[in-house]
Design a protein around this nucleic acid. Structure first.
Lengths: 202, 202
DNA sequence: CGTGCAAACGGACCGCGGTCCGGTTCCATT
DNA sequence: AATGGAACCGGACCGCGGTCCGTTTGCACG
């Protein structure tokens, strides 16, 4: 009587089959390469499938959707960036005063969100929730806010400080209004200063 | 010799042909009705064309793209809202102190951006620039900031205050993190207070 | 080494946004 | 009223994201 438990209950993770894992890797590698070469906007799901030597449905089966695949590509970039925040040299990495780390965070995110705007937009398109890296950003800023003793509804203040760094906003400012990046950064740092400064005169 | 000036120079707007104008109206009316009935996400360009009794290409010829059509639909809502800001009762309309008008602005925008999230997203999808109403919002907030004597890089501070009202951010907070709208609003008003309070201790 | 089956595969297929192009319509000019 | 041509029209067509379904494959168990 060849069967496993009818009721697996909890645990019991159904391990990924070897061919599935291999295809996942091949697809992701192909996607990274194509995005690098052509830019995210020009990469079609079919071209990724072909480059990976795999059927189109397999790409969707492993990554759910185009935005899911792009999110996986983006995750590599974000992981590298996160490493710089967690263990890299100050002021972005640990070792600098909180205020300076915040300023470095802003500069770094503005640069990255502009440089990778097309990939980020492809990864977040129609996904209704921010991409995975957002929660890391929020935790980091929150941590720095705590060090600075920010008072008030901290999670909302964190969101308020992160919101102007969204690619859509940055693109609007830099590509359409032609504001210099330096000015955008200075404005953001000014904002942070005001938020950190404390509760308003009510 | 039937010809107009070979060099029209400036001015001389080539008026819209009557059939074109008629179709434009029919398409827009059909789109408004369908969006109202089904929600923006469920409205296809072909269904709009059919409801308007017109070929699909005509819809695109008049409105450029799906997001262009949705922006036209959205403009009606925004025009109505702008009327309330310009000439409606306080505190949203004129007559209340600037701080209270700002708070009313926030409440009203949060409600509207959540209620019409799908339409706004359809109107701004892949358009690279904020929808037309943004500039009105910015001017309004800037005007109130001027009344309050806000110092610093005012345009950037305006953007910083507007950014957390974007639908993507609000949806994240309300639909995914399940924050109550009242709390989001209170957080925004707190933010405004800190921004208005003045430059940080440098 | 068999055997059974869930899991994975791939290519045909679908719907939708967007474009093309041959035919039609409005309107300025005479 | 006739006319010429620019602007407009519509439906066939294309490419891409996403799904369906009949076939193949890896792997746990005997």
């Amino acid at each position: 009587m060849p069967h496993r438990d009818l009721i697996p209950l909890l645990g019991d993770p159904p391990r990924e089959r070897s061919d599935a894992a291999r295809n996942r890797d091949a697809v992701l590698a192909a996607a990274v390469e194509l995005v690098e070469a052509l830019g995210a906007a020009a990469v079609t799901m079919e071209s990724v499938a072909e480059a990976a030597g795999v059927g189109k449905a397999t790409v969707f089966r492993r990554f759910e959707s185009r935005s899911g695949l792009m999110a996986a590509v983006l995750d590599r970039v974000e992981a590298q960036w996160q490493a710089a925040v967690i263990g890299g040299p100050p002021p972005l990495g640990p070792g600098a005063p909180a205020r300076e780390r915040l300023h470095a965070f802003g500069r770094s995110r503005i640069d990255l969100n502009i440089a990778r705007a097309d990939l980020i937009e492809a990864a977040t398109a129609g996904s209704r929730r921010s991409y995975g890296a957002w929660s890391f950003h929020a935790r980091h800023v929150r941590h720095l806010f705590d060090e600075l003793g920010v008072s008030g509804d901290v999670p909302l203040l964190v969101t308020a400080v992160l919101a102007p760094l969204e690619t859509a906003i940055l693109r609007q400012q830099v590509e359409i209004e032609h504001l210099p990046v330096e000015r955008v950064l200075a404005g953001w740092q000014d904002l942070v200063g005001r938020v950190v400064a404390g509760a308003p005169a009510r």
